[in-house]
């Protein structure tokens, strides 16, 4: 899932500036699950903004709504009337949802209510960790199913650097050394040979470094497949 957390109230209040009629739109997908932008958080953000503005002598009119998945056109379409009536729309979706709104409603002032951090999972109640870096060329088959690209602070592909101590990364106590985990896993499975060969310079073209990614499935296209193939 995509993990996000709410921006500080102060920052959002600064962005909304002189807008009086606000619409806060939550998302029912990942950010609901990570308690950042679901129905409950959307309402409490609206309350917070209302009170924060009131303290400064501003009377806001704030409404809230939800999109089941804010990252798809069809789920943000029904919001059209409410979006048009608002001075500004605060999206508490991930960065994808915010942009879906921005592209769907080019006239509207769309403001992000969250900071999107990573692709990961809740490892326990209240703790989320990054698990995937979206590098476009998955290496998990060779690393015991644990990702060094996302989970090593230096994305090392050939084992732990000198900063690994007691299972912890040199950057700090909250970060496990994923290479210690990989080593332990593969040793336990008697498959250490997987990391004994050297992984040479990785191809980062399929990653973000090659430019924004676009995935094309011509078998799923409804319109102009041939035009797409020629691109």
């Amino acid at each position: 899932m995509i993990i996000a957390e709410q921006k500080p109230l102060r920052e959002i209040l600064n962005i909304i500036d002189k807008d009086k009629k606000l619409l806060v739109i939550g998302c029912g997908a990942c950010v609901s699950i990570c308690f950042a932008g679901g129905e409950k958080e959307t309402k409490s953000l609206a309350d917070g903004l209302f009170l924060g503005a009131k303290k400064e002598g501003l009377e806001l009119s704030i409404e809230t709504d939800m999109a089941l998945r804010q990252c798809e056109w069809e789920f943000v379409e029904p919001l059209e009337d409410r979006v048009k009536k608002a001075d500004a729309v605060i999206s508490t979706a991930c960065g994808v949802g915010v942009q879906t709104m921005a592209e769907k409603y080019p006239e509207a002032k769309i403001i992000p209510g969250l900071n999107t951090t990573s692709m990961g999972m809740p490892v326990e109640q209240g703790v989320w960790k990054e698990y995937c870096g979206g590098c476009g060329d998955c290496v998990l088959a060779f690393t015991g199913g644990l990702c060094p690209v996302a989970r090593c602070a230096k994305s090392l592909l050939n084992g732990p650097c000198g900063g690994s101590k007691d299972g912890i990364c040199e950057i700090g106590r909250d970060t496990e050394c994923v290479w210690q985990l990989i080593y332990d896993r593969l040793k336990g499975q008697d498959r250490l040979e997987l990391i004994m060969g050297n992984v040479l310079a990785k191809n980062w073209e399929p990653a973000r470094d090659g430019g924004p990614r676009r995935t094309l499935r011509t078998d799923l296209l409804i319109r102009g497949e041939k035009d797409e193939e020629q691109k």
């Binding site: 230096k154 994305s155 090392l156 592909l157 050939n158 650097c161 050297n198 992984v199 040479l200 310079a201 990785k202 980062w204």
Partner: peptide, 11 residues
């Protein structure tokens, strides 16, 4: 970290 010390050595 385009490379790591090992892919750097190889290069």
């Amino acid at each position: 970290h385009d490379l790591d010390s090992i892919s750097l050595l190889d290069m």
